[in-house]
């Protein structure tokens, strides 16, 4: 796989039984970005939010208790680690599971806002994220049935994966990583704990980068 252009040199591989996560130049770069964003999510303090009153100089401080953001901070960090897993894993089915984990932590971040409008968006997103498991797992199953393996190491460069499975894999990741579309509509940016929304955008971006790599390699 490492003679293909997209991956770059092999840096490190971690043998976990049948699932062998690996660091190539490409995935190690993505992983470094994920680590930076996990640190941002862990150390930022969105409790100090200011509301500016338009048309005057006045501002007032929003009262946000520590407990209100604890849940969304936890979920943002969990989402970061799920993204890390999705970026590093060397197995198609394991990748789809990590994508689902990213999807459900995104639902959690959106749902932790109490606003009714935001919850409605979270619900609609959750429906799409849930039915996206069909193309995701379907793609993994078709790959297993037609090539006899799930490991990206074995599949790399073989070109044996049918187009249908590739299309379904991309469609599935689209469904799980569709959250940013909802964020814009739900005005969650102005809700409390808004900085964690950053993690939603970031994780879906990285999922897309990773699935592009997988589809080009297999």
């Amino acid at each position: 796989m490492f003679d293909l252009n997209i991956e770059g040199a092999e840096l490190f591989a971690l043998p976990f039984g049948d699932i062998v996560p690996y660091f190539s130049v490409y995935s190690a770069t993505l992983a470094a970005f994920v680590l930076i964003f996990i640190l941002i999510a862990a150390f930022d303090r969105p409790e100090r939010q200011l509301n500016i009153i338009f048309g005057g100089d006045a501002f007032y401080e929003k009262e946000i208790k520590e407990g209100d953001t604890r849940f969304s901070r936890f979920m943002a960090i969990a989402c970061g680690f799920a993204t890390l897993g999705a970026v590093l894993t060397g197995d198609i089915f394991n990748f789809t599971l990590f994508a689902v984990l990213v999807g459900i932590t995104n639902i959690a971040i959106v749902a932790s806002a109490g606003n009714h409008h935001v919850l409605n968006a979270a619900f609609q997103y959750g429906i799409v994220a849930m039915i996206a498991t069909v193309p995701l797992f379907g793609a993994a199953a078709i790959i297993l049935a037609t090539t006899g393996t799930l490991s990206i190491w074995t599949l790399a460069g073989m070109g044996a994966v049918p187009l249908l499975a590739k299309a379904m894999l991309i469609l599935g990741v689209m469904g799980e990583g569709i959250a940013p579309l909802y964020i814009g509509k739900a005005e969650i940016i102005r809700a409390q704990g808004a900085p964690f929304v950053l993690m939603i955008h970031f994780s879906s971006l990285l999922l897309f980068l990773r699935v592009t790599e997988i589809v080009l390699v297999i």
Partner: peptide, 19 residues
């Protein structure tokens, strides 16, 4: 052999429950 799958799976259950 595929232990990592089950780790992720139980984590998904955990997150779903936490929500």
């Amino acid at each position: 052999t595929r232990g990592l799958d089950t780790v992720v799976e139980t984590t998904i259950l955990f997150v779903g429950f936490a929500v």
